[in-house]
Structure formats: C-alpha cells, structure tokens
C-alpha cells in the first residue's frame, strides 16, 4: 500500500486504486491518461489504455491495487518506461506519454506500445512480489525474461532476442527462447514472477 501525503498538491493515480484517505480529497477522472485530447487519441490507437484520476487535496491518501507490491521510483529529469497496467501513481508534475517498444510487446502480450513517465518527481510502479532493481552499464548488459520485466529507466537500448532453433519446434527448447537484452546505462525493474506470455512456454 502506498501512502501519499498531500498539502494542496495533486497526484495522478490509476482509476479506482484509492483505498482510504484522511483529510479533504477530490477525485477527478482524467480521460486518455491525463494527456488531453492527443493522449486520448494515441492511447486509443495504441491500445496502451490507462484510466487515471487526479487526486487533489489536504491529508494522506492511500493507494493499493490487488495486493501487489509497490515500488517507488525517483525521477530526476529522466524517463521511466513502464507498462500502463503496472503504473499505480505519479506526481502530477510528471508527464506521461506513450512510446513504441518494438518487437518485445508482441511476445509479452502487452501490446507494441508502452507508457513513459518523464520529469522530476516520484512514480509508484506495481509488481507481483517485490521488484529487483538491476543496474545496466555498458560493460554489463542484462537479459530479462519478458514475463518478468516491469519497467526500466535511463538511456537503454533494448533488443529482442529470440533463441528459437529447430529444437524449439521439436519441443526441446531451452524454455527461455525470448529475452529482452538491455544495453547502455540505466536501471531495469524485474519482478520475481512471470506473467503468462505468448513466448513463455516456448
């Protein structure tokens, strides 16, 4: 559960994720992920839908969603890439948007687009079990199972790695046929659980 102390400022949170609050709060639904008309159109087009509410007021507001773990990410002008379904709450000052992720989405079943969060402030992301934060440096690239990936930040290039060989077709695959390889400089958030992915059983 996430507790947010507010004094007249606002946060953007996943619609319906408020579980309790004390003080004075107003909740306002924001269509299109709070990105205005352009956001509404791109989110509809990309299928990266996100219903967001703006919470404004004085006091403490508590957010939670399906008992999943909540991880706080501090952003200092850099960009966080996260699946819309894993984003719980952001500071109102952070800009959110959508971006093309490339091939990875196809294997994770999460669509070809992902949500970006940008600016200065904090964002809360959700994971099934506490997330492990892994640093990627140019010397140490990282490979991640698409089902366990939840978010990344920093300047990272991601490559989609497919180790599908004729053995996979014969049912003798390595079980880890699809991986996302991160190179560059940044952080990757991984959850200790795997979503069911199209590529998961290969």
């Amino acid at each position: 559960m996430l507790a947010v102390d507010m004094s007249g400022d606002a946060v953007k949170a996943k619609n319906g994720s408020m579980v309790a609050y004390d003080g004075q709060m107003t909740f306002k639904k924001m269509s299109g992920g709070g990105e205005g008309l352009r956001g509404m159109v791109t989110r509809r087009l990309t299928g990266e839908q996100m219903t967001v509410m703006e919470v404004r007021g004085q006091g403490t507001c508590y957010f939670a969603d399906r008992a999943s773990e909540i991880n706080l990410v501090s952003l200092h002008g850099d960009k966080l890439y996260v699946e819309a379904s894993n984003l719980l709450c952001t500071d109102a000052g952070l800009r959110t948007g959508t971006t093309f992720t490339g091939l990875r989405g196809g294997a994770t079943g999460n669509g070809l687009f992902t949500t970006t969060v940008e600016g200065m402030g904090q964002a809360a992301i959700m994971s099934d079990g506490p997330a492990v934060v892994l640093r990627v440096t140019p010397q140490y690239p990282l490979s991640v199972d698409p089902g366990a990936y939840i978010a990344h930040q920093g300047s990272l290039q991601q490559h989609f790695q497919a180790g599908v060989t004729f053995r996979t077709l014969m049912g003798e695959g390595g079980g880890e046929a699809f991986q996302i390889r991160f190179e560059g400089d940044g952080l990757v958030y991984v959850q200790p659980s795997e979503r069911n992915t199209v590529g998961g059983d290969v």
């Binding site: 053995r167 003798e172 880890e176 991984v190 959850q191 998961g200 059983d201």
Partner: peptide, 20 residues
C-alpha cells in the same frame, strides 16, 4: 533449472533443452 524460472541474467549464459 525448471523451464521459465529464470527472470534475468548478466553475462553470457546459454539455455539448452535437455535433449541437447
């Protein structure tokens, strides 16, 4: 390891089915 339990790795690791 059992299939699908790896979530991430650093370095160079190959995963091969046991029929290899």
């Amino acid at each position: 390891l059992q299939k699908g339990k790896m979530i991430a790795y650093y370095g160079r690791i190959d995963f091969n089915g046991i029929g290899h």
